[in-house]
Amino acid sequence: MAVTIAAPITGTVIPLTEVPDPVFAKALVGPGVAIDPGVAATLTVTAPVSGKLTSLKPHAFVISHRPDQGVLVHLGIDTVHLKGAGFTLRAEAGQQVEAGDELIVWDLGTAREAEKSVVVPVVVLEANAGDLTLAEAGPIDAGDALIRIG
């Protein structure tokens, strides 16, 4: 059964290899792509797929859409060091979410002032790159198809 992972934010799709973090760039966490939000000041981050919000931190979340597979969305690089500053949570870990549900509002100014990358990796956990069809590099709107599994 094919699953579509939607873009959680609006921006520009870039290859994972261009993410300024070797763990993501080398796909050590899993295959996927990243989105550069460009000059956006504030982003509403939405659920890219329906499922259980198994992990929710201010800077990252995982939605399990299958018992053995989840989608990780990481808001920026090294943004864990911001200790939640600039992030407003709109959901709770453990809840069921639908694709498009608002999960986090992100004020990117805080990350930029701290000189953190605001690139957003979207990674499919427990997946093989060969099973994924990734969106082409270029502009994308939140809710558009980003990754297809199967």
Rank of each mutant, 00 (worst) to 15 (best):
K52I: 11
L53C: 02
L53Q: 12
L53V: 00
L53Y: 11
L53E: 00
L53F: 14
T54F: 11
S55W: 13
S55G: 05
L56E: 07
L56Y: 04
K57V: 14
K57M: 15
P58V: 02
P58D: 06
P58K: 02
H59S: 14
H59Q: 14
H59W: 14
H59T: 04
A60V: 02
A60L: 02
F61K: 11
F61P: 07
I63A: 08
I63F: 08
H65S: 11
R66D: 10
R66S: 14
R66M: 14
P67T: 07
D68T: 13
D68I: 01
Q69P: 09
Q69K: 12
V71T: 11
L72A: 03
H74G: 10
L75W: 02
L75K: 08
L75H: 12
L75I: 14
L75S: 03
L75Q: 08
G76H: 05
G76P: 01
I77F: 03
I77Q: 03
I77W: 03
I77G: 03
I77D: 08
D78Y: 04
D78I: 04
D78G: 05
T79S: 09
H81F: 11
H81M: 10
L82H: 12
L82C: 07
K83E: 14
K83D: 15
G84N: 08
G84M: 02
A85P: 02
A85K: 13
A85T: 10
G86I: 06
F87Y: 03
F87P: 00
T88L: 10
T88E: 15
T88F: 01
L89F: 00
L89P: 04
R90F: 01
A91T: 10
E92A: 15
E92F: 04
A93L: 04
A93S: 12
A93D: 07
G94W: 12
G94L: 14
G94V: 09
Q95Y: 01
Q96S: 14
Q96A: 15
Q96T: 15
V97H: 07
E98P: 00
E98D: 11
A99H: 05
A99Q: 14
A99G: 08
A99F: 09
G100P: 06
G100W: 02
D101R: 12
D101I: 01
D101L: 06
E102A: 15
E102C: 04
L103W: 06
L103K: 06
L103P: 12
L103D: 12
I104N: 01
I104D: 00
V105H: 00
V105G: 05
D107F: 05
D107A: 09
D107V: 03
D107N: 13
L108A: 08
L108N: 11
L108D: 09
L108R: 04
